[in-house]
Design a protein around this nucleic acid. Structure first.
Lengths: 213, 213, 213, 213
DNA sequence: CATGAATGAGCATTCATTCAT
DNA sequence: TATGAATGAATGCTCATTCAT
């Protein structure tokens, strides 16, 4: 045996470059093929490492998947949606709605939403954490913003969490479902704009505070 | 020769009792575990038949799955939602919304929506057919109803398909996603009522035709 | 239950018509597909009976196969080759050689020789019995004939069994092997004639008794 | 980096030791049990590797079988029979005949001839290739030799291909068929010598060129 | 006796995981 | 640490055989 001449990074190191490389490759494969459809072989190839190396950084397929969903959640959380409480609702909602749908309906097919939804029954923890960190989190951010606009009397809303979610869901109308069921391709920016504008209008029609006169 | 008193049902017969029995068992397993997660062994056990019998009635796993999704689609289609064009919007929307969410968020955990969504990337035909028969179909029924109410001037809507979908999506707000991501159990009737009522209010606030004075 | 009103033929009866019917169907399938390639389903279909009926007449696939090979052996034995010891060798050999090759290289592909050869390692009894009854038997018949011609001094042969087999093998030259290896189709009557004639010539060149002068 | 002192052989490599090991084990099983009778489990056990390893080196059972038949063909081809055109016929034929029968009637029971014959109906390509490479090839080699001896006027033969095959078939007389049908064990050297000598005698009686006087 | 639905052991094949190098 | 050859349990599927009718 040859003496080892270089200090090695601890294998489980959360931030090693190799770890990132693996996760990047694995992300693509998992999102395209689903948890069951993805094979460790394919993942190794996509990540450009050997199969054995996968197991140096992750104990098994399951925990590799979890790590990816976790990172995806965090990324989503960060992407977030700079709600400026001082901006008016119409502008803010339009901007947020578009950004939101563009993420949810990624044209490259790698929708984390679908992938996690698919596995949620068998991996409830993964599903719940993703929901909490991504959907509930975004919902909460928007609700906070709405509360701010309620405070300045632009809006009149009773349940801001519900209202925020109503808006988010309306933005998906005619777009997300055909996309996720493969009935139509990912929506174009124009289609998104149309739907988000309509959602904004409906939202404000119902929730704009009556003019005080 | 003795008169035969009962005709034997041909094994491949679309309506044989055994076929139903298999589909019932397989439905549970597929919905709980997903297409890949479900093994034919498990399905056989759940259906109370032997593995071989599965293959008497269905040529392979894939076509068993398709048959189940197909039946599910038909059931959804039949459930449909008796839109009476002569009834006023508020009543109709409330009733429809509740019925709709109760189906989408079945408490027995077997959400066909989730299962089909999960596999749609790898079985696009299955996804598309389900979307067409269930979601687009329901959307179309509601849009038809809306057009009727536009005609009688109760409502003022430009794009009735979009409006219908907006309503359907709003009804899901705070209910479907936590359910499908396993973050919360299936919603209670009370929760559904609250959300549907709010959606109805918001919808009518935006789409009720202005009183002619 | 209804009283049985007709006497039934014992199921195992060696000569029942049904038994023949089954064997006729099974023969085709076994000879075309080989023992392993033939499925009881296919055999039942080919015989025009139900799968269950097969097991009324034969205890299992193995014994059905044995019965067929047995019958085939007997048939081959009967077919045999009317060696008339008073006929001259050239005429007799020519006639026998043609008849022999026409059986061995049946154009319908159902060569019992191939089928039995194929399974002989796993069913040595079947192989041995077939060899004894068909090949050795034919060989013996011809040897007997040769001995008769030796006696009348037409031929001068030391080992008539060997000589007979030499002739039989020569008749197969360039015909049987391409046929059985699927390199060429079954030989035509003309091809057979040419080869058999050549074999006859060679045989007589070596084994014709020298003229006494 | 440490210098690698041995190159790892790529798994699919045509010449890896493991590949040979598998083929050796598989050969035994295929020859003993036939293509259908041989199970991949049995082959794995016989080869001393796991089932999975089989599939690292061969894509499926079929191609493992083909590889073995191919190798067998090549081996047969190489064994070939050094026909020296300057040697006299009697010596050459005796030597060739013995070598030929010793290969065709291998005492270890693994007759490739039988195994390929058995599957030829269902795998015609395999059958044809084997016939071309082994039987037709050997036949051709001998025919070439005969032509040489015809040229030097030792022999007088019209159709050398046919004559060669006649000799090859005669050598098999009373030996190959009992062997392949399991009626008798593989022939001894003495038995072979007797039969080959007789075949040689008969052959030369018919094909030796008449002395010019 | 005849049927054909039902069975379950057995098959070829895949793939997450291990481990010697 | 990184590799990839090797493993073997598990999968989808077939088919000889059984048995209630």
């Amino acid at each position: 045996m040859v003496a080892q001449t270089h200090l090695t990074v601890a294998s489980g190191d959360e931030d090693s470059a190799k770890r990132h490389q693996i996760m990047d490759g694995a992300r693509r494969v998992f999102m395209d093929l689903g948890f069951d459809g993805a094979s460790m072989n394919e993942i190794a190839r996509a990540a450009g490492v050997s199969k054995g190396t996968l197991y140096v950084y992750f104990t098994d397929k399951h925990s590799l998947f979890e790590a990816i969903v976790e990172r995806e959640s965090l990324d989503h959380g960060k992407t977030a949606f700079n709600f400026d409480p001082s901006l008016d609702a119409e502008t803010s909602l339009r901007a947020f709605g578009r950004a939101y749908i563009e993420i949810v309906c990624r044209p490259d097919g790698g929708s984390a939403v679908r992938t996690v939804m698919a596995i949620a029954e068998r991996m409830p923890d993964v599903g719940r954490r993703f929901y909490d960190r991504v959907i509930a989190h975004t919902n909460h951010l928007m609700a906070e913003y709405l509360r701010a606009r309620v405070k300045v009397k632009e809006l009149a809303i009773d349940d801001c969490e519900l209202a925020a979610m109503q808006f988010m869901m309306m933005c998906q109308a005619t777009l997300f479902q055909p996309y996720v069921f493969q009935a139509k391709p990912a929506p174009t920016k124009e289609q998104i704009a149309t739907v988000v504008d309509s959602a904004t209008r409906l939202f404000l029609a119902g929730y704009r505070a009556p003019k005080k006169s």
